[in-house]
Amino acid sequence: MQQTLEQKPPVSPKVSAPPMAPTFSIPEPAQMPVSADYKTVGVPLVENAKFAMRDVNVFYGEKQAVFNVNLDIGENEVIAMIGPSGCGKSTFLRCLNRMNDTIDICRVTGSIQLDGEEIYASKMDVVPLRARVGMVFQKPNPFPKSIYENVAYGPKIHGLASRRVDLDEIVETSLRRAGLWEEVKDRLDAPGTGLSGGQQQRLCIARTIAVSPEVILMDEPCSALDPIATAKIEELIAELSQNYTIAIVTHSMQQAARVSHRTAYFHLGKLIEVNDTQKVFTTPDHALTEAYITGRFG
């Protein structure tokens, strides 16, 4: 007995733990484990779903970018998708009109239904799908054509107007809805690229609504704009929500709080929480959501 005690190696002072500092340690949220079969908290599913996503996974080559997302987007709803950079929210958004098809190594599994129709079905044609589900991009990307031609582009390729007067009407209506008509009605022949950044983005929105989509996807539409232009776009989103279903990805939590009805929080490719916007920003259900909206990481 004695001998075994003696054989025990002496405790080296190097190994001994430093004295515990009286800190309260917050677990680093980015490190917080989210299990592979994590189940979204809150209310991801709704009654009048326009879009219904079930078990959606997205891969870039070997790397998985989105994990098992289950989410509904209701008719005429504005849903905001927030989360830290690289959390998969933009990738997820781009699945909804199959823009990810343009990336060779991207692969999507699971089910995404628009009005009960599977959009990743082999018989689904992406051309009419993208006309139904329009998209506004992060950076304003007007075509190098006149303002008129920018808006008329969609109606022309889809044959929505047979006569010039019909086209004129679509262009005017779309520009009015995008809140740009008064600013540009005297110079419709001027190049769209000559407008200011905010005007360009509203031109892109006008271009999108000119093909009468049912859903508009917006991928950080204000991130390249100044605060005044941002305020105009946000106003516009509120107006458009009367007629369209809108899904918006944003880095600005204030923007999400101002424009959306429901908010979805993504973290490392997983949909953590979906709730009414007000609830997400006041009493979130998940600790990660709370950590993000209170600015502890982002």
Binding site: M135, F143, Y153
Partner: peptide
Amino acid sequence: SLKDGALGLGSTRSEVVKLVVIPA
């Protein structure tokens, strides 16, 4: 971004080439 914009409006590949890429 220009091609994406055109594709996002429901252009076919050839429309993207004819109406956006070649003019630009």
